[in-house]
């Protein structure tokens, strides 16, 4: 018979949000701590270091989605680990069929390329949507501050990419040609009159022209997110495709909620399936029509389903 003194007392509520991940070997778990947008205070970092040192194996792992993972935590220490990490907001990260911790680049505060405040967006999504059960599969959200797209936004279920729309005031232009030189897309060339000629179709909304212009002749007249939906990686990668442009930052949460609502409905009865595969099955028009109801000014006229990346060819 089991010795009652040797049984472990655990607050199972700590397990419900996920983030305790079984390791190889007996009794050992990884505790995944969420770091939305990858930014944390030095104070929090110190506290994590302290707890990792006391209960872990002398190292932590930085997950590919910016979480900090405490390694080799004995399950009997769960309550102590959670209590010692303390500070209410030190919540563990999720796993399973939920909305995951959003990832983001450093954003526009200190990165010279950043066009929008991705850190703010990531915190807002974390606060309002983190942990929401999808009923089907995991659901990842990522924020890139500009079209350089370091966070690889298009391989998220919903990926956001900062964008600005440039406009030229010819009177203020001094014909220096820096904008044409800076434009990586060839969307700006210098005309015969030594003034820039803009081809909107080629523009990817990076804002380099605005940033380099010495006289502010190029100005940003519209700012928001380019939104791609249906991406994922793993065994069968998909690259998400364009569904909306210049989505205002304050509409991000509502937009994700609408994608989720469509996904939940269309994936009914299909089990563990990601939103990208549902778009392929249903057709992109169905999701476009759903999103157009609430975001008529931002949803694109037409698009294509997420694109399959064949990673097995050549074997």
């Amino acid at each position: 018979m089991a010795d009652k003194n040797k049984t472990t007392s655990l607050d199972l509520n700590n397990l419900k949000s996920g983030g305790f991940i079984k390791e190889r070997g007996k009794d050992l778990f990884t505790v995944r701590l969420r770091v939305p947008g990858g930014r944390m205070s030095v104070e929090r970092l110190k506290k994590i270091a302290e707890v990792a040192d006391k209960y872990g194996k002398g190292f932590v792992h930085l997950s590919v989605r910016q979480s900090v993972e405490l390694i080799n935590i004995n399950f009997s220490d769960f309550d102590a680990v959670v209590a010692e990490l303390g500070e209410g907001e030190q919540k563990v990260a999720s796993c399973g069929a939920r909305i995951r911790v959003p990832v983001a680049c450093g954003g526009c505060e200190y990165n010279p390329n950043g066009l929008v405040d991705t850190q703010k967006s990531a915190l807002e999504v974390d606060e309002k949507l983190f942990g929401t059960a999808t009923g089907h599969h995991k659901f990842k959200v990522g924020f890139a501050g500009c079209p350089f797209d370091c966070p690889k936004s298009a391989i998220n279920d919903v990926g956001f990419q900062g964008a600005i729309w440039p406009e030229l005031n010819l009177d203020e232009c001094i014909s220096c040609g820096l904008c044409a030189k800076s434009c990586a897309e060839g969307a700006i060339v210098m005309g015969p009159d030594k003034k820039p000629v803009f081809s909107p179709d080629r523009c990817t909304y990076c804002g380099d022209c605005v940033k380099v212009c010495p006289t502010e002749a190029w100005k940003s007249v519209k700012k928001g997110y380019t939104v791609r939906i249906g991406g994922k990686w793993g065994r069968h990668p998909l690259v998400g495709t364009l569904f909306a442009t210049f989505l205002p930052e304050e509409k991000v949460v509502e937009f994700i909620a609408e994608v989720l609502a469509w996904y939940k409905e269309k994936a009914e009865g299909l089990g563990r399936i990601r939103v990208g595969d549902i778009i392929i099955k249903e057709g992109a028009d169905s999701l476009l029509a759903h999103l157009r109801i609430n975001f008529p000014d931002h949803v694109v006229e037409k698009t294509i389903p997420p694109q399959v990346i064949e990673t097995q060819i050549g074997k």
Binding site: L178, K181, P214
Partner: peptide, 10 residues
């Protein structure tokens, strides 16, 4: 020529 002017403006 793409980076230096922009950085000096910054």
């Amino acid at each position: 020529v793409k980076n230096v002017p922009r950085s000096l403006k910054g």
